[in-house]
């Protein structure tokens, strides 16, 4: 994701980014064990809604896809599918060390090692698993990035679609499962 240094957004885009930054809806998809720290972040103690963030039921409605921890190949297929259903601008946040380099599952046959090979990650939150404070901090950073126009992973994905698709196919074999019922 190479950023061009100067801010060449039009005034309308700047206003749009202001709205996007202050109303970030996340996709409710618990892909891994980091999801256990999401309820405390959402609920009364840390209260994510202060930042304008809230869970959304379907990928169409959501702005940010949270990858909460390790991704098995079976999940990654659904995650890619979900990501492609989301409407741009869309953002991806990787949780925990497993999304960075495989973490404790570096030699597992079922989990991937690097999330940014398959999806354009805008922000990583380190930790195994990240504490709610770290998650809140990461979200504040994401909001800041959106406001400044730095979170452009979705544009990068559009521009380098072939590269991402090639990586996905290399690792997964097939991205979309035709018959999930196995019949």
């Amino acid at each position: 994701m190479v950023l061009d240094e100067k801010d060449n957004r039009s005034p309308w885009e700047k206003i749009g980014d202001y709205f996007s930054a202050n109303s970030v809806w996340m996709k409710w998809y618990c892909t891994g064990c980091g999801a256990i720290e999401m309820p405390p972040t959402m609920t009364s103690r840390f209260d994510m809604e202060r930042l304008g963030m809230g869970p959304m039921a379907t990928p169409r409605q959501a702005d940010v896809l949270l990858i909460t921890g390790y991704l098995s190949t079976k999940t990654l297929r659904r995650v890619i599918y979900s990501y492609e259903q989301m409407n741009s601008p869309r953002y991806v946040v990787g949780f925990g060390s497993c999304t960075v380099n495989g973490g404790i599952y570096y030699d597992s046959y079922a989990t991937i090692n690097r999330l940014d090979m398959y999806l354009p990650v805008d922000l990583y939150i380190a930790g195994c698993m990240p504490r709610p404070e770290a998650i809140m901090n990461g979200f504040a950073k994401l909001i800041d990035m959106i406001k400044k126009g730095e979170a452009r992973g979705w544009r990068h994905y559009q521009e380098n679609y072939e590269w991402y698709k090639k990586n996905q196919l290399d690792s997964l074999g097939e991205v979309i499962i035709k018959d999930e019922f196995h019949e």
């Binding site: 495989g102 989990t111 090692n113 290399d170 690792s171």
Partner: peptide, 9 residues
């Protein structure tokens, strides 16, 4: 298997 399928950083 992991090395052949899932590239490391």
């Amino acid at each position: 298997y992991s090395d052949s399928k899932f590239p490391m950083r």
